[in-house]
C-alpha cells in the first residue's frame, strides 16, 4: 500500500518515527491507517490542537456534523520532570541536541530512570474519546487524529514534551538552570580559583564611562567601501543550491537579479541618492 510505504519512508528518518508507528499499531489502528490518511488528505481533520496532557481535533465523516476527537495522556509530574532535567543536565548530549532542535533517543532512558515514559508504553493510559461514541467503537476519525499528532511529532518531537507537560523553551531554561547548579556544585567541590571566570561578565559602569565610547579612535579609523560588488550573489554560490522543491532553477536567476539590485541600490543609498 502506497500510504504505508510513505509512512515507512518517514519511519526510517528517526527513532521518533519508529516509536510513532509502534504506538499507532499498539493502539489498534494499523488496519485504519489508509482511511485515516484519506481523511487528512480530504481536509476533514480541523482545528487540531495540542495542549498539556491532550490533543484534539474536529473530524468530519462522510455524513453529518463533525465530531470532536480528543486524546488524553497523563502529564508527567513536576517532581519527575525535575528528576528528568537533573539527569539530562549531567550529559551534555541533551543540552546540545535540544539546543540544536533535536531529541536524542537517550531521552527514553531518562524517562525510564525516573519511572515514567515519554511515549506511553502502556496504552491503557491513553484515553481516546470520540464525540457520541463509546470507547469500544472508535472509528477512522480517532485514527486520523492520532495519525495527525504522530505525523507532527515526526517533524517536531518536542510536541511530546509539550504533551507531557513541558514546552521546548521551558525545557531549555530548566536544563540551563540544572547545568548551572551542577557546575556550581562542581566548582564548590573542587574549590578552585577560577580567576578568569568573570572576565566576560558585564560590569555596569556608573562613572563618566557610562556616556562615552571606549574606543573613539578605533571607531574613527573604520573604513567602508560602499560599492556594489562585482559578484553580488557570490554568497549564494558558496552555499549549496537553495532547497526549493524542484523550482530552484526558476528562482535562482530571479534571486541573483535581486542581489544585483540590492547591491546597486545599497551603493546609491550610501551615496545619498
Amino acid at each position: 500500500m502506497a500510504s504505508r510505504e510513505a509512512l515507512q519512508k518517514r519511519i526510517d528518518k528517526s527513532w521518533v518515527s519508529k516509536k510513532s508507528q509502534q504506538l499507532f499499531d499498539q493502539l489498534g489502528f494499523d488496519e485504519q491507517l489508509d482511511d485515516a490518511i484519506l481523511l487528512i488528505k480530504k481536509r476533514r481533520v480541523l482545528d487540531f490542537v495540542v495542549t498539556t496532557g491532550s490533543f484534539s481535533a474536529r473530524v468530519y465523516g462522510d455524513v453529518g456534523a463533525p465530531k470532536v476527537v480528543s486524546v488524553s495522556i497523563p502529564v508527567v509530574s513536576e517532581a519527575k520532570w525535575k528528576k528528568a532535567f537533573s539527569l539530562m543536565a549531567k550529559k551534555a548530549l541533551f543540552s546540545s541536541a535540544i539546543l540544536a532542535e533535536q531529541l536524542p533517543k537517550d531521552v527514553l532512558a531518562v524517562f525510564s530512570q525516573i519511572g515514567s515514559d515519554l511515549i506511553p508504553e502502556d496504552t491503557s493510559k491513553i484515553v481516546i474519546k470520540v464525540e457520541g461514541k463509546k470507547q469500544k467503537d472508535l472509528d477512522d476519525r480517532a485514527a486520523a487524529v492520532i495519525y495527525r499528532f504522530l505525523d507532527r511529532v515526526v517533524d517536531d518531537p518536542f510536541l511530546l514534551f509539550a504533551l507531557r507537560g513541558k514546552g521546548v523553551e521551558e525545557t531549555i531554561i530548566e536544563l540551563r538552570r540544572h547545568r548551572l547548579a551542577l557546575a556550581e556544585s562542581k566548582r564548590e567541590q573542587e574549590s578552585e580559583d577560577l580567576d578568569e571566570v568573570d572576565g566576560a561578565s558585564v560590569l555596569i559602569p556608573t562613572t563618566s564611562d557610562f556616556w562615552q565610547t571606549p574606543n573613539t579612535t578605533e571607531l574613527s579609523e573604520l573604513e567602508y567601501n560602499i560599492k556594489a560588488d562585482e559578484l553580488p550573489a557570490a554568497i549564494l554560490k558558496r552555499l549549496d543550491t537553495l532547497p526549493l522543491d524542484g523550482v530552484e532553477d526558476e528562482v535562482e536567476p530571479l534571486l541573483e537579479e535581486a542581489y544585483n539590485h540590492v547591491t546597486t541600490r545599497a551603493q546609491a543609498y550610501g551615496l545619498g541618492l
Binding site: 573613539t216 571607531l219 567601501n225 554568497i235 540590492v262 547591491t263 545599497a266 551603493q267
Partner: peptide, 26 residues
Amino acid sequence: FQDSFLVWQESTKYLLDLLAHGRFIP
C-alpha cells in the same frame, strides 16, 4: 549628538557596506 549616535552612524555605514557586497541571505 552624543557618542551613541556616532556608533549608530558607523553601524549604518557598516550595514550598507554589507548590503553592497551582497552579504545577506534569505
